[in-house]
Deep mutational scan, measured.
Amino acid sequence: MLEGKVKWSNSEKGFGFIEVEGQDDVFVHFSAIQGEGFKTLEEGQAVSFEIVEGNRGPQAANVTKEA
């Protein structure tokens, strides 16, 4: 699992980007967020995730919010 911080997200469009130190930003779709209820990410929020190869390149999977 990698750790990063949410660079920005748009809940209306359903995606955002995660900033990882020393690496390119990672695309995240809201379907990759683990948990119940409305899935949102806040700018600056710490997250853990895996990287998978998506249709348009690397993207985050199994995203969990850190406490």
Rank of each mutant, 00 (worst) to 15 (best):
F30N: 06
V20I: 11
G44I: 00
E66C: 15
G4I: 05
V26G: 00
V63S: 02
I33W: 04
S48A: 08
P58L: 10
E3P: 07
V28C: 06
I18R: 00
Q59Y: 09
G16Y: 10
S48Q: 13
F15R: 00
G54M: 07
K7F: 03
K13V: 06
E3W: 14
E12L: 12
A61M: 10
G16K: 00
I33Y: 04
G54V: 04
G22I: 02
V47I: 06
G54T: 13
G35R: 00
K13H: 07
W8G: 01
E3R: 15
V63H: 01
G37Q: 08
G14W: 09
E66D: 11
D24A: 14
G54I: 05
D24R: 13
N55D: 12
V26L: 08
G44P: 00
I18Y: 01
A60G: 03
G44N: 05
G4Y: 00
M1Q: 10
W8L: 05
V63D: 00
E50D: 09
I18H: 01
I51W: 05
E12T: 12
G37K: 07
T64M: 12
V47R: 00
I51N: 02
L41P: 01
I18T: 01
V6I: 12
G4V: 03
I33E: 05
V20Y: 06
N10E: 04
E50C: 13
V28G: 04
E43L: 15
F38I: 14
T40E: 09
E19P: 00
E66P: 11
F27A: 00
W8M: 05
E53K: 09
Q59D: 02
F15N: 01
A32R: 02
V52I: 12
F38C: 15
G4C: 05
E12D: 11
I33N: 03
V6E: 02
V26S: 00
A46W: 15
V52Y: 08
N10T: 06
F27Y: 09
G44Y: 04
M1F: 13
I33H: 02
G16P: 02
S31V: 04
V6Y: 00
K5E: 04
A32G: 06
E3L: 15
S9N: 05
F49Q: 03
H29F: 06
G22P: 01
E21H: 12
G57A: 03
G16W: 15
P58S: 07
G37I: 07
E53Y: 14
E36V: 10
V6F: 03
E53W: 14
E21S: 11
G22D: 06
F17M: 06
F27V: 01
G57N: 03
I33P: 02
A46Q: 12
G35N: 07
F30C: 08
I51R: 05
E21K: 13
F49P: 02
A32M: 06
A61V: 12
F17C: 07
V28I: 08
S11Q: 14
A60K: 00
G35W: 09
F38H: 13
M1Y: 11
K7E: 02
Q34D: 08
E50F: 10
E19R: 11
K65M: 13
A32D: 12
W8C: 09
G16A: 13
Q23M: 15
G35A: 07
F15Y: 14
R56W: 15
E43D: 08
G22A: 05
G22S: 05
F15M: 03
I18L: 07
F15I: 08
K65V: 15
K7L: 02
A67R: 12
E43M: 14
E36D: 12
F17N: 02
G37V: 08
E43T: 14
E53I: 14
